[in-house]
């Protein structure tokens, strides 16, 4: 039971984590993440890595789509830009991995701004279709700019190093990814404590009155596109260095949709939602695979249903959450917390 939550200063009331209980759980989570690779096997660490990369990408997309209300079907394309930027810088110019991380972000942000620039005049469907075009054109570029991308064969990158230390093993790279994910989450949380974040939400809720309140729509929509694709670019950079290879089919339209699904399932406009959605949408296919594996004795063919079944469940999750729980897992989490807050005295 948590009651007696009084503040004496405005600073205390403006803090993100307002009570000692919350801070305690946060430290516990950090500690758990720290020791995780010591206890978990290679497979679990790999899953954690993939999930954390997805968190970075989902936080970025949620800034744009959930918080600013600008739908994007080009997120995978921007991730691809980041991935290729990193791979090309590493293989052709010998740039250290850690430097390619911000550069990948910037390259993707530049693309985001170019796509976003016409967005001041476009809304809803038109913007959605324009970002779809961006995705198609970027995919085409990945395949056909052979001299740079090696076409469908893709680019192989060596295991990343950091200040001479090899990050070849899963656990070593795990820490890099976790730090990037933690910074991404913190930075976007910070954003919403200031005028920039408020402006984003105002544009989503009512862009016309936002402008009459003094918000420069063009500037802030571009900010949203730049930030969102910066995160996407970093996620792409992490991904290529995790998998050690980048090919065009790693960043198809379907991946853009998958990221949209993450933030819908997690909760549009919620940072916690981005995290929950990324975890959920990464783990569900794995659980499904294990579940089908249990029935393999009955029907050896059953694994051939795995992929289409995943596709159906994926679609059903999007539809189901939008129809029944439009605020996503974050809202379910909030309700569960509210329930336990006064527990066991519910009335």
């Amino acid at each position: 039971m948590r009651i007696g939550d009084f503040k004496e200063t405005y600073a205390a009331d403006e803090a993100v984590f307002r009570t000692p209980t919350v801070r305690f759980w946060l430290w516990a989570l950090a500690a758990a993440l720290l020791v995780f690779p010591l206890l978990a096997g290679e497979y679990l660490i790999y899953m954690a890595n993939i999930t954390a990369v997805a968190v970075v990408g989902a936080v970025g997309l949620n800034l744009l789509t959930g918080c600013t209300g600008l739908i994007s079907l080009g997120h995978a394309g921007f991730m691809g830009v980041g991935a290729y930027t990193s791979a090309i810088l590493i293989t052709k110019f010998g740039v250290p991995f850690i430097l390619t991380l911000p550069i990948s972000g910037l390259a993707a942000a530049l693309c985001g701004v170019i796509v976003g620039a016409p967005s001041l005049r476009m809304k809803g469907l038109y913007l959605c279709i324009a970002t779809l075009a961006a995705q198609v054109i970027l995919e085409f570029t990945f395949v056909h700019w052979e001299s740079l991308t090696h076409g469908i064969r893709g680019l192989n990158v060596p295991a990343p190093t950091l200040f001479g230390l090899s990050l070849a093993s899963g656990p070593a790279f795990y820490y890099v990814i976790m730090i990037v994910a933690a910074i991404s989450v913190t930075a976007s949380r910070n954003l919403f404590r200031t005028r920039v974040g408020r402006a984003f939400i105002a544009i989503r809720d009512r862009d016309i009155s936002a402008q009459l309140m003094g918000i420069n729509l063009f500037q802030y929509k571009l900010y949203a596109f730049a930030l969102s694709s910066f995160f996407a670019g970093m996620a792409g950079c992490l991904m290529v260095n995790l998998l050690k290879v980048v090919t065009p089919e790693q960043y198809p339209l379907h991946l853009s949709i998958q990221y949209l699904a993450m933030i819908i399932v997690g909760g549009l406009g919620s940072i916690l939602g981005s995290i929950l959605g990324a975890i959920f949408m990464t783990i569900v296919p794995e659980l499904l695979r294990s579940a089908l594996g249990l029935f393999q004795g009955l029907d050896p063919q059953i694994m051939s249903y795995l992929f289409p079944l995943q596709t159906v469940i994926f679609g059903a999750l999007i539809v189901g959450f939008l129809v029944f729980e439009p605020h996503g897992l974050a809202e379910m989490w909030r309700r569960a917390k509210a329930y336990f807050r006064l527990w066991p005295f519910e009335y």
Partner: peptide, 28 residues
């Protein structure tokens, strides 16, 4: 029918989800 009056983003995403369901079912 459940989506009447919802924001454009939600409606677009529902039909995208639907396309995924139909595609998976066709393959099954």
């Amino acid at each position: 029918r459940h989506m009447l009056g919802q924001p454009v983003i939600s409606i677009i995403m529902v039909t995208i989800g639907l396309s995924s369901i139909l595609m998976g079912l066709a393959e099954i």
